[in-house]
């Protein structure tokens, strides 16, 4: 989705290789992950008996407390509001960064700026806030992180091209 080339001490990102199948594969994987977050609520509301088995997938990485989660059709999502925001922010980032080459170049030059986007989440963790706020801070924190795997994929592809091998 994004190509990188070293320009002096800078990391320049262009949108010239937007057709990278691996980057689209990553986006598909992110969408599938989001579907898994929503699926248990949809299946449970439809009366499917094993909806909780899907919900169980997220238990190692989320507390899944219903009171801290969004509800769809009366059923809680498989992840809490903050985790849902993180997952959605990352997915939006993977989808959007290839369309924002100038901003992507700026962020790639100063990657520590992603920490600034995490400050609201870090502050929010210490407070008892509304679900919408937890969702929003998660979304903001994860959006810039979506660029990082795209940079890794582009770098792997550039290396493969230089060595004459197949793309990763």
């Amino acid at each position: 989705m994004a190509a990188i080339r070293a320009m002096g001490s800078h990391q320049h990102v262009t949108g010239e290789s937007l057709q990278s199948p691996w980057a689209y594969g990553l986006l598909l994987a992110c969408l599938a992950w989001m579907a898994l977050v929503f699926a248990p609520a949809l299946f449970a509301s439809a009366g499917w008996p094993h909806a909780d088995a899907l919900r169980w997938l997220f238990h190692p990485v989320c507390h899944q407390i219903p009171g801290r989660s969004f509800h769809v059709l009366g059923e809680p999502l498989a992840a809490c509001a903050r985790c849902t925001g993180l997952y959605l922010g990352f997915t939006l980032g993977v989808a959007a960064w290839p369309r924002l080459p100038n901003l992507a170049t700026r962020l790639a030059k100063r990657p520590r700026w992603i920490l600034v986007f995490m400050v609201p989440l870090a502050v929010d963790v210490t407070f008892e806030s509304a679900a919408v706020v937890r969702f929003a801070t998660g979304l903001v924190a994860a959006f810039p992180c979506g660029l990082l795997p795209l940079l890794a994929i582009a770098e792997l592809q550039a290396t493969q091209t230089q060595t004459g091998g197949d793309p990763p």
């Binding site: 001490s9 990352f90 990657p111 520590r112 992180c145 990082l148 795997p149």
Partner: peptide, 22 residues
Amino acid sequence: IFGTLGALVGVAIFHKKDANPG
């Protein structure tokens, strides 16, 4: 999944830029 994401964030944070490339 999350270890790889953490590693990419780690690269963004800890990478030391070469002040005099080339």
